[in-house]
Design a protein around this nucleic acid. Structure first.
Ligand code: MN
Ligand code: MN
Ligand code: ZN
Ligand code: ZN
Lengths: 133, 133
DNA sequence: GTCGAATTGATAACCGTTATCATTACGAGT
DNA sequence: ACTCGTAATGATAACGGTTATCAATTCGAC
């Protein structure tokens, strides 16, 4: 009765392409990479696959400061946050128990329920900072 | 020598319209409100005025989870964050020294510089939570 | 009041994303 | 293995927010 998910080479291709990346990538960026590698996969399919991966929890997604949706296959399974280089995309996964509690406390202190928080840090990694000098 | 900003009724209208709002608003939402109030102001002008206000610091801006840019004339002048009701837009300004330090520490711990952080909490305010029941 | 330059606004262009829909191809059942 | 219903695909159009264009307007220094 439940939705049946079929196994297509396209889905697998997206999963692999995402795994092979270090940082966050946009759907278009990933699609371009796949095409460059010779894959004939369609753009719409990449969008769909990424959305599915995000829903299932196999991929993390966030919005760049410019409003573009970015995806990443994170090593950490549980809830966590990110420190991202806005130049090269290098990403560090971060667990911040401290912030989790602060968020929960802040929400309840003001009578808010069903609270979700967006916590991300964008900066320049050591390498990119050096290269810029 | 520096850029000269002219005083037009359009800019003032946007400022006032923004001040009269409680929560965050989109450029299109604010424009619609102005038109409804009888103003013939153009959409592009509203976008420009809001961008300017944000640059100068008279308005705060953030991106909704859906990727839309939202603006608000905040009471607090300094750096702060927000607790936003995703149903009615009610916004609470929050100072989180605790989080500020955590962000700074986290970035430097990993060799990141020029770090900026995005920290927002979206939830349901008491009133909206009640209404939903 | 003049006049050059900044601002405005109708409109087109842009860009990321989603919807459409004819075609393809999984995979459950046989 | 073969069929067959249906989910998945992909080229393309449509969508929604935002920005660029550019002729007309208007601010404000003189
Ligand atoms: Mn968290
Ligand atoms: Mn902060
Ligand atoms: Zn970097
Ligand atoms: Zn509310």
């Amino acid at each position: 009765m439940v939705a049946v998910k079929r196994n297509t080479w396209q889905r697998e291709a997206v999963r692999e392409a995402l795994d092979s990346r270090d940082g966050f990538v946009s759907a278009q960026g990933l699609h371009q990479g796949l095409r460059d590698a010779g894959s004939p996969i369609g753009l719409a399919t990449v969008y769909r696959a990424l959305a599915d991966l995000a829903t299932v929890g196999e991929a993390d997604s966030l919005q760049s400061p410019e409003g573009e949706s970015l995806y990443r296959a994170c090593a950490t399974t549980g809830h966590h946050h990110h420190l991202i280089c806005r130049s090269c995309g290098l990403t560090v996964e971060i667990e911040a128990t401290e912030v989790e509690q602060w968020a929960k406390r802040t929400a309840s202190d003001h009578g808010f329920t069903e609270a979700q928080h967006i916590v991300d840090i964008f900066g320049l990694c050591h390498q990119c900072a050096s290269a810029k000098a």
